[in-house]
């Protein structure tokens, strides 16, 4: 069958009620910006029912855990992600990633994501929160942000775009009340300072993201090592889920970021 398996999975996860929103690379495909990701990545509702539904659908497809936190609200609430893999009928590798606390999104926005997602035929993260999710440590995401921003109203595009030409074009009409350094530079009328301000901003965002990820990397070390020793990634999903939860209870901290830092990361 020809189609995007990640779009199909999104519909299947949500068949029994709103459970996930398609995010990241496949959401970029959905918004017709670029074909750029081989994996599927979803915001999952932070409820036991939503986790059960996802595990049920993946279990039917023969999925296995990849080394990662258990899909359980106790770890999802601490910002952890859960990762799975299976092969489709054409032997293609399907990777499925889940989280409930997208970085850089304030809690109120996260709570409203599912409401905003209803505006699309497929349950997908809306453009502006998707841009915040894409402010990662990867350089290639900033080109995508520039294109996604073009889908926004001009004031919001000016606040978020990574394209110096769009900043220069929009700033005189919409930038007078903004304190974004690139916009202030554009109001002064020269291009180079705009380019420099955007580069500094992207560099700062990349560094912040790397610092956040290092906290999780360190916090996961013992758990991931023991998980591999246990052969958990080879087990059927129901058994692996039970074992992953037991193991996580013994050595995976639920909230690696201090609460104030978690809030700051979400802003």
């Amino acid at each position: 069958m020809v189609g995007n398996v990640y779009f199909e999975l999104t519909e299947e996860f949500n068949a029994a009620g709103p459970t996930v929103l398609l995010a990241s690379g496949q959401a970029v495909v959905y918004h017709r910006i670029a074909i750029m990701s081989k994996d599927g990545d979803w915001v999952v509702r932070e409820t036991p029912d939503a986790c059960r539904r996802v595990l049920e659908v993946l279990g039917c497809r023969g999925a296995r855990y990849r080394p990662s936190a258990p899909l359980d609200v106790r770890w999802l609430a601490g910002g952890w992600s859960s990762h799975f893999e299976f092969f489709d009928e054409r032997k293609r590798r399907i990777r499925c990633d889940f989280f409930s606390r997208p970085p850089r999104l304030p809690r109120a926005v996260i709570d409203g994501l599912f409401e905003r997602g209803r505006g699309h035929p497929l349950a997908v993260v809306d453009v502006e929160p998707l841009i915040l999710m894409k402010q990662t440590q990867r350089a290639k995401d900033y080109a995508v942000i520039g294109e996604l921003s073009r889908l926004l109203p001009p004031e919001r595009e000016l606040a978020l775009t990574t394209d110096p030409d769009r900043v220069l074009e929009l700033a005189p009409r919409f930038g007078s009340a903004m304190d974004r350094p690139a916009v202030l530079a554009a109001l002064a009328g020269e291009r180079d300072p705009v380019v420099v301000a955007l580069a500094r901003e992207a560099d700062r965002l990349q560094a912040e993201d790397r610092r956040r990820l290092r906290v999780y990397e360190d916090a996961a070390a013992e758990y991931l090592g023991r998980l591999r020793q246990d052969g958990l990634t080879e087990k059927p999903l129901a058994e692996a889920q039970e074992r992953a939860v037991r193991l996580a209870e013994s050595c995976l901290p639920r909230h690696p970021l201090p609460e104030d830092e978690a809030d700051a990361a979400a802003q």
């Binding site: 990545d41 992600s81 859960s82 990762h83 990633d97 440590q137 990397e217 996961a220 070390a221 090592g225």
Partner: peptide, 15 residues
Amino acid sequence: YTHGVLVLVKSPRRI
């Protein structure tokens, strides 16, 4: 990993 909080985990050997 390309998404989630483990993207800096490059190789299983490391951990």
